[in-house]
């Protein structure tokens, strides 16, 4: 087992498992920063996983497929925003509706497009390519990790930086945070909270759709029924644990990805699989514990100073 843990394959597995969670965690953080919990991530990812396959196959290349999927993801975000902001639906219930619609809707769509109910194997898919970086590729060990990843994995890391800059260095990012912190205060200085939350949810949908696209166009090369398998919810937890910041979400997603990859390797040992399957969830619990303990200490220190 140790040799498996020290091979580049293990680190590749971590990055692979991290990518979809990371996109969704970023999606969750931008929505949370604007004051809305986007629980529809799961449904958006599932829809996007199918859209990715369909659009890529229709247009004949993955790039336009990805763009169209991002547009579709943004539209689902818009739909959620419409229900929550215009119709004043409870944000959690609207999200549950979208998630339920995704479970049945993707099967219906897949049936209409491919005649299959279980998986999209009859559609020839165009997945995002792996990127080989010259020179870096040749570094022993490290090169096999830094290079040769799926394009979407690199994009997810770029997205962390972009989202960080967006939220903390741009006027729009400031407005999003202002609305999330205190809607009334933001309104009082002339910010339209509705407009800002619309933008945040659409952006959230676009980011989640990129995670969904990766599921069927990189991780796997086909869509299979219910393939999001709870990743959207895990991402919600990752984002919350990371304090709803892009960088925090990245670190926690990486931790979750590592826990999942470790659990996968551990199944090769004699340890009962029931215990191993607890590893990702145990990590979440421990992580949350440490996070809230650290938060408590910080508050205590502040209190002492005051």
């Amino acid at each position: 087992m140790l040799e498996n843990l020290l091979s580049p394959d293990f680190f590749n597995a971590i990055l692979r498992a991290t990518t979809p969670i990371l996109f969704a965690a970023l999606a969750s953080s931008v929505a949370s920063k604007s004051g809305i919990t986007n629980m529809a991530l799961e449904g958006i990812m599932l829809f996007s996983a199918l859209f990715g396959v369909i659009f890529s196959a229709m247009t004949g290349n993955f790039f336009t497929g990805l763009l169209l999927t991002m547009v579709a993801g943004g539209l689902i975000g818009l739909l959620l925003a419409f229900f929550v902001l215009n119709l004043k639906t409870d944000e959690i219930l609207a999200a549950i509706a979208i998630n339920m619609m995704a479970t049945g809707g993707t099967v219906l769509l897949m049936l209409a497009v491919s005649g299959d109910r279980g998986s999209s194997t009859s559609i020839s898919n165009f997945s995002a390519p792996r990127i080989h970086i010259p020179l870096i590729e040749q570094i022993p060990f490290l090169g096999q990790i830094l290079s040769g990843q799926n394009l979407m994995t690199y994009l997810s890391i770029v997205a962390v930086v972009v989202m960080h800059l967006f939220l903390y260095k741009t006027p729009l990012g400031l407005k999003i945070r202002a609305v999330g912190e205190n809607k009334n205060a933001a309104e009082s200085v002339g910010i339209s909270s509705r407009k800002i939350q619309y933008i945040a949810l659409i952006l959230s949908g676009v980011l989640a759709s990129m995670g969904g696209f990766f599921l069927s166009g990189g991780y796997m090369n086909m869509f299979t029924k219910d393939m999001s398998a709870g990743k959207g919810y895990i991402a919600l937890a990752a984002s919350a644990m990371g304090g709803d910041t892009p960088v925090g979400g990245f670190l926690v997603s990486l931790l979750f990805g590592a826990a999942q990859a470790l659990a996968n390797i551990m199944q090769l040992t004699e340890i009962p699989h029931e215990l191993i399957q607890m590893v990702p969830y145990l990590t979440t619990l421990i992580g949350l514990g440490i996070y809230s303990y650290a938060g408590m200490r910080r508050r205590q220190k502040l209190a002492q100073k005051a």
Binding site: N4, A229, G230, Q267
Partner: peptide
């Protein structure tokens, strides 16, 4: 190796790759 459900194809792939 056990997936733990019958739908998570990405996890199935990771387990099999391992």
């Amino acid at each position: 190796s056990w997936v733990g459900d019958f739908v998570d194809s990405t996890k199935g792939k990771d387990l099999a790759l391992a």
